[in-house]
Write a protein that binds this DNA or RNA. Structure first.
Lengths: 173, 173
DNA sequence: GGGGACATGTAATTGGTTACATGATTAC
DNA sequence: GTAATCATGTAACCAATTACATGTCCCC
């Protein structure tokens, strides 16, 4: 978590509120956070000296603008260089699909159809984000945006194919 | 968590140890758990009456065989029917990629190459699981197995394409 | 004057991991 | 005899969410 905050501050100075908004926009699909984790994290990082907190008043509004320090920048790079704990994807729908033999077939079909619908909504949202941000972000951020787009397309295709397969079958048994 | 345990017990009676082993085999890529969460969960479920615990001794080994009750079966079905909280995938490597502008280009390429290697290892492991289980599981469990296989293939392809793109570029800026 | 976005934070709780503690059986 | 696997559990800890608590500015 701390590393992700550092990552955002590496893109520019911002407030806790802004970090939350940015996470909601850009990394929501593969990482999310609430104020309850952002502010304590910011506090920790400030105490450690990885970020600097500036209390300012901007058009009458008191805010705390955080910026990354050299120490923080070093920590960020170290984290980026460290090996990511091998792929660990938590995907609840798939768990349900795994156990869905306990459901009647039509219910299972419904489940998958609904999931496809959700994915497609996600795709639309991502497209909006894309329209807003393309051209205003660096290519690394673009990579992940494209990843999201391509992944959802893959998933939709996969589940559509699954639906066809299910139609042919009698059930999970 | 409790629901996942119920799911496994829905497939047959087993011990906590066996549940852990099964999770490691079949759902590891999209769900994992440790003893520290399995046993307390089993305890909770027993107290609630969703599972039944039978202390037996089998070839000198004392074990507790858990089985799902009618109540538990109902809870399992309810969970399966409940809408999954819309796709929530936590993928640390992608977060790193998102912020990787702070890394030199060759380092970034290395990062992606290593991730591909890891994915390929995962693929091999999954293939082993496939060889062992295909024919011995119901088609729902097969769905998720195939999903894993197809997903990894997609990911490898995607990252390989990314590498090519990266070669052409000068950096993330 | 009221709703929405801006803005910051804490407290209680949840959900989980890691590490510890223990001990039997089996196969080499 | 010793290492791997089978087997069960607890305690300390950690990371994060939810809900709460508070207040301002801006636009209608």
């Amino acid at each position: 978590m701390d590393s992700v905050i550092l990552g955002f501050l590496g893109l520019g100075d911002m407030t806790g509120y802004e970090i939350k908004k940015r996470i909601g926009l850009s990394t929501r699909f593969f990482y999310n956070a609430s104020y309850g984790s952002i502010y304590p994290s910011l506090k920790r990082l400030t105490e450690k000296g990885s970020v600097k907190a500036d209390r300012v008043v901007e058009n009458g509004r008191a805010k705390v603008i955080y910026s990354i320090t050299d120490k923080g920048r070093q920590e960020l790079v170290d984290w980026l260089k460290s090996p990511a704990p091998s792929v660990h994807i938590r995907y609840e729908f798939l768990v349900k699909l795994f156990f869905s033999q306990h459901l009647p077939r039509d219910r299972r079909v419904e489940m998958v159809s609904q999931h496809i619908a959700e994915l497609q909504m996600g795709l639309e949202e991502l497209r909006k984000v894309e329209a807003e941000t393309r051209g205003r972000v660096d290519s690394c951020q673009l990579y992940t945006l494209n990843f999201g787009l391509d992944l959802i397309a893959f998933l939709v295709g996969w589940y559509e194919n699954l639906l066809e397969q299910m139609e042919e079958e009698h059930g999970c048994e």
